[in-house]
Amino acid sequence: MATHDIELTVNETEVELTVDSRTLLVHALRDELGYTGPKVGCESSKCGACTVELDGDAVKSCTVLAVQTDGASVQTVEGFADEDGELHPIQEQFSAEHGLQCGYCTPGMVTTTKHLLESNPDPSREEIRKALKGNICRCTGYQNVVDAVESAAAALAPAESEGESASGDDVDLRTDYPTPGED
C-alpha cells in the first residue's frame, strides 16, 4: 500500500508527515500530529465536530484525505488563541454566553463561526442557524451558541461601524441590483 510524504502547515508550523493514501486528514491531525481539537462524531460528514480551516476555508477534516493537503495550510482550534494565550473573541463569546456544555462540538462550532463571520460580519439569528447546519450540538439546543455567534459578531465589528450597518450591505444580489453611483 502506497504511502506518501507530505508537507503541510498546521497552525503556522510546517510539518512533514508520511501518510497512507487512505488516511483521513482528521486522523493525521489527531493521531500523527497530536492536534486533537478536531473531533470525530460521525462517519457521514454530518456532525461537523472535525471542522478545520483548510487554506482559509472551513471544511470537514473527516472528508479530506491527508495526502490531499500536501502543501496546504491547516488551522485547527488550537491555533485560535493568540501567542500570549489570549482567547480569540469567538472563543471568549462562546464562554461568556455559555455556548458550550460538553465541548465536543465546540472546536467545530468555533471554526465554522469564524468562517461565517468573515463572509457575513453581521448575520441575523436565522442566518446563524442556517450557517451552523453542518455542526451538530446535542447539549445546548443551539440557543446560546447563536447568542455566542451574535456576540462574537459584535465583538469583531470595527468600532466605528457599530449600530446601523452601512448602506448597501444588505443588498440581495438575486433581486436587487445597485445601479452605478448608488453605492
Binding site: S45, G48, T51, L54, D57, A58, V59, K60, T63, V64, T112, H115, L116, A131, L132, K133, G134, N135
Partner: peptide
Amino acid sequence: LADLQIRNR
C-alpha cells in the same frame, strides 16, 4: 445544498 463546510469543498 448541504452545509457551509461542504459548500467550501
